[in-house]
Design a protein around this nucleic acid. Structure first.
Lengths: 260, 260
DNA sequence: TAGTGGTCTAGACCACCGT
DNA sequence: CGGTGGTCTAGACCACTAA
């Protein structure tokens, strides 16, 4: 199981020839491979820094730097005195990393404390991917996809109508029953049941006028301004695995963002 | 000019008594103080790591870690072989850190290449702070503030109407002439002419219906859905120094965000 | 008490930059 | 070439956690 690092591995430079990646990046790549292959599952501890240093034949400091960056990217979580763990969407800390809709009043800038959110599934169907969905998910048109629609109620108000598209091949057993029998974050289900961990996402926001169908679901007047959040979510190696369109009522809520 | 660090300085713990901050955090605090006091101006190089290590009486590795975090927070910029520089809003890299509106089509996820943006100033007035503005800027109601209104045109389309509020005391000589005679990013002017550097910002986004006045400026129909971006910008030590309300037309543009 | 991550050091060497 | 940041190491000690 030991891996040997040599100068001369991986890395890509600007022009032509391949360059040499620093040891800590090679170490990082090996860790990423193990994570992707599921050697350690979400929530589990990875080996200690000393152990990894021995395995990879580098110093502890080098392993440390490799882990540092993975922890910064929310792939790993360090806990002093306990170890380093594979991040999981089932944990509370990670809960609000991807949900940026907040009630207007209470919390200042920090994460909302106990925001009573319930998710109601409307339907879950298997379809052939429309052109635009296929393009964004990097599938061929008409490849099988799963479409989920659900309503998020925050503070007992219907607030977000989500329309979620997933590659059919990757989410084979996904069904309406499976969804409604599961409580907890959707991404938690995905990582536990389908081995697909959402790593990062890009979002595009627009203001649009509610059409009749959406207005009805959200209990607002047709033509009301809605916040449209289009999200593309990626798993390891920058593979897009979820397209999501969220239609949000922002009369008592807002989308929160921090620029650093 | 030398500073001596001892165990026992700064830092705040959960309960009661003060705790000891690690050396690299104390170093960071000293660097921050120098930055805030303008010992090194935006765009200038700070002393080398070795030099700082000697000045603060710590090892180079400790200075390095202190700088690492400041660089991660975009306060400093490292350039291999050249030195470490105070970040500046006058540079091109920093340009799009705070402007998240992008044209729909061209660029993928990367920063837009040569997005033709022109800023037209509508007015610049000195007023007494309305309640809500005062609250957010942590001023007393009716304290003097500067209000700037401007129109951003992207790709020759009127796209964002900005309404900017600044504390009057901090921006004393700011006037319409000063603004129109200055080309370049607003934050560049603020840091160069008023010694106030914008460090981070929080934004709250909503979808709203355009009222008559805003609709007229943006050349859209009254009631059209607009993206409202309310930004609170902070300088050193988390002091809020700018409140901005941006009304964006998102028919051909969107607000881009990345979740990590 | 043993094991983990967190801090700190000193020193070596490399990669890059300007002169 | 000299100076800068970037990498890597080995070892010491601290702080926290769990058994």
């Amino acid at each position: 199981m030991n891996e040997i690092l040599k100068s001369g591995a991986g890395g890509a430079s600007g022009r032509g020839g391949p360059t040499f990646a620093p040891l800590y990046r090679q170490t990082q790549a090996l860790l990423l491979r193990s994570l992707q292959q599921g050697e350690w599952k979400p929530g589990e501890a990875i080996p200690s820094e000393t152990e990894l240093a021995a395995r990879f034949g580098v110093s502890q400091g080098t392993v440390r730097k490799a882990i540092d960056e993975l922890a910064a990217g929310n792939l790993l979580v360090r806990r002093q005195g306990r170890g380093t763990f594979v991040a999981s969407h089932q944990e509370v800390r990670t809960q609000f990393r991807f949900l940026r809709i907040r009630p207007d009043e209470p919390a200042g800038d920090g994460a909302p404390t106990a925001m009573p959110t319930t998710s109601r599934f409307l339907d879950c169907r298997r379809l052939r991917a429309p052109v635009e969905v296929a393009r964004q998910l990097q599938l061929r048109t008409a490849e099988p996809v799963v479409q989920i629609r659900r309503l998020l109620e925050v503070d007992a108000r219907p607030t977000v109508l989500d329309e979620i598209w997933l590659p059919g091949a990757r989410f084979r057993g996904l069904s309406a029953e499976r969804l409604s029998s599961y409580s907890g974050p959707l991404y938690g289900l995905f990582e536990a049941e389908f081995g697909t961990r959402m790593i990062r996402a890009t979002e595009r926001l627009k203001a649009i006028a509610a059409d009749a169908a959406v207005a009805h679901e959200l209990d607002v007047a047709e033509g009301s301004p809605l916040l449209l959040v289009e999200r593309l979510t990626y798993t390891y190696e920058d593979v897009p695995v979820e397209l999501r369109r969220g239609y949000s009522v922002t009369t008592h809520h807002h989308y929160f963002n921090e620029l650093i």
